[in-house]
Design a protein around this nucleic acid. Sequence first.
RNA 1: GCCGAGGUAGCUCAGGCGGUAGAGCACGGCCCUGAAAAGGCCGGUGUCCCCAGUUCGAAUCUGGGCCUCGGCA
Length: 304
Amino acid sequence: MPREALAPVVVLGPTAVGKSVVGVEVALRSHGEIISADSRSFFRGLDIATDKPSLVARRGVPHHLIDRVDLAEGYDAMSFRKDAARLIPAIQGRAHLPIIVGGGTLYLGAILRGIFEGPSADEGLRKELESRPRQELYDRLHKIDPEAAAKIHPNDRLRIVRALEVYELTGNPISVLQRRARPLGYSFRIIGLSRERAEHRRVIADRVDGMLRRGLIDEVKRLKAKGLGPGTQVYRTIGVREVFSYLAGEIGLEELRGQIIVNTWRLVRRQLAWFRNDEGVNWLNVTGRSVDDITDEIICRLGV
RNA sequence: GCCGAGGUAGCUCAGGCGGUAGAGCACGGCCCUGAAAAGGCCGGUGUCCCCAGUUCGAAUCUGGGCCUCGGCA
């Protein structure tokens, strides 16, 4: 098979647009293997909250990076990039097509836009920095890296802390390191799935109802029993925080459902805003179309 | 039926001793380089329940009506 035919495919799009199902179908028809780029499916034990495709739904197609790490562990964009850099040639080596499927913006960004070489998160340092007043942190950043300070809003504590962390650990301003970031060296063929808003909202409501029916609350209870709470990476997952608040008696069942739906929708909007900036995305409106129909068109566009 | 409270943004409500309104959330847009399903920034939203009166001017004052929620019957 010619190497060009195995150039990795990316299927991206907002949450609940149908990427997983379509990804499997495309893989079945093209000898593909899937690399998940879903920022929460990396974690073992978070199945319902992330709407992880079941083994049945995977239909025998290999799904890499799903359940990659334990709930209590961390995973980040650079880890993903390294995993992808290792998996893509391995899959191609089997004469299979690598298909990256997901909507994790920073994770996709790490391979499509690039990410700089630098230190990973240093919890101790972050804690220390976070205890300082915001203005002080911003002033310090302004002194050591005016370029980064100009880009980061004074209220964006997260990014200010990250920039200071990088400087503390490397002695280099983050803005200098960021300039060296490069995409992974493949000619990715990027398909973006989109859906009209009214339908998308209905799908999200159905999906949330399904999660609650399948035992979202119990799943989060198990997670809580393991001592995973605020401050952990998985806690920052839509559906987890809301159930914690429900279990604490702060909100009722109806409010729980409503909040998860609203927060999912806000995520969708942020994902769309991010992806809109990506050049080279081949957008496909899937509103009202069947999986087969969508897959036909993708296969046709890819010529695989 | 009587008494009380109230009807202001999609929702919850603030304000208003007369000069046509506001907060949070929702909603929309934007930013994003090792936390990203996270974090941050910006922006609309309106017969101020209806009708009449007073007034240069009423969402605000007065009267009537309608509706909602309590309490008493």
